[in-house]
């Protein structure tokens, strides 16, 4: 555990808390993509199956359980409790366009052809593109609430901080995982346009709106 990894995890945790707090306080999930949230639940479920096979630390187990539980709780809020506020018309990205190619890629490009390893690889690839339905939704409506922007910024920062963590681990631990690094870079690149808008607009007190 290094400082970048810890900051990355805290940023990820903060993103989830911001999202839950936004929904709970406003009693609404307007502007949030249910597709992205379903994909995240799939990501956590397929990646953390090792909860049953190996124990790493209390921290590790606690975080994994929290990520899984919060992702399903978010889906419950969106598709059940606050269903009336869910903006399904603008959430029209097709999940199968991501899940199917990513599933195929996980079968073809992995470290070891084992069920758990393939599922782990699938989750890494899927996480890298899981934000696309959300970004698609923001571009379709042309705007995002400020609280949603904070959520996306924290979520994007998490993988950027993981890249610093991988650079650190490469130099100081001799550790390198090509699959995680490439997918992590793809994931971070997808946020670049958003980061630019966040810094130039939201941080200056303006609402995030896209030029028509």
């Amino acid at each position: 555990m290094n400082v970048f990894r810890l900051l990355g995890d805290m940023s990820h945790l903060l993103a989830i808390l911001i999202l839950l707090l936004k929904m709970w306080k406003t009693r609404s999930c307007a502007g949030i993509s249910g597709k992205t949230q379903i994909l995240f639940a799939l990501v956590f479920t397929t990646r953390y199956l090792d909860l049953f096979s190996s124990f790493i630390s209390i921290y590790n187990t606690t975080m994994k359980l929290f990520f899984i539980a919060s992702s399903y709780f978010t889906i419950f809020l969106m598709y059940s409790k606050f269903k009336a506020t869910y903006d399904s018309n603008h959430d029209s990205f097709r999940m199968e366009f991501l899940v199917v190619p990513v599933g195929g890629l996980a079968f073809l490009v992995n470290h070891e052809f084992l069920p758990l390893e393939i599922l782990w690889t699938f989750s890494i690839y899927l996480e890298s593109v899981a934000i696309l339905p959300q970004l698609f939704m923001v571009s379709k409506t042309g705007e995002a609430e400020t609280i949603t922007s904070h959520y996306l910024f924290a979520l994007g920062s998490y993988r950027l901080l993981y890249i610093f963590n991988w650079v650190y681990r490469y130099y100081f631990d001799g550790f390198f995982d090509l699959i995680a690094v490439v997918a992590g870079c793809v994931q971070t690149i997808l946020y670049c346009d958003f980061f630019y808008l966040y810094i130039t607009k939201v941080l200056k007190g303006k609402k995030l709106s896209l030029p028509a």
Binding site: R5, D9, H12, D50, S54, I56, S57, N60, M63, K64, F67, H111, W120, Y162, N165, R169, D173, G174, F175, F176, D177, L178, I179, A180
Partner: peptide, 10 residues
């Protein structure tokens, strides 16, 4: 190249 160490990441 060590990849198994990535499994402690979240």
């Amino acid at each position: 190249v060590d990849y198994t160490a990535s499994k402690d990441e979240l």
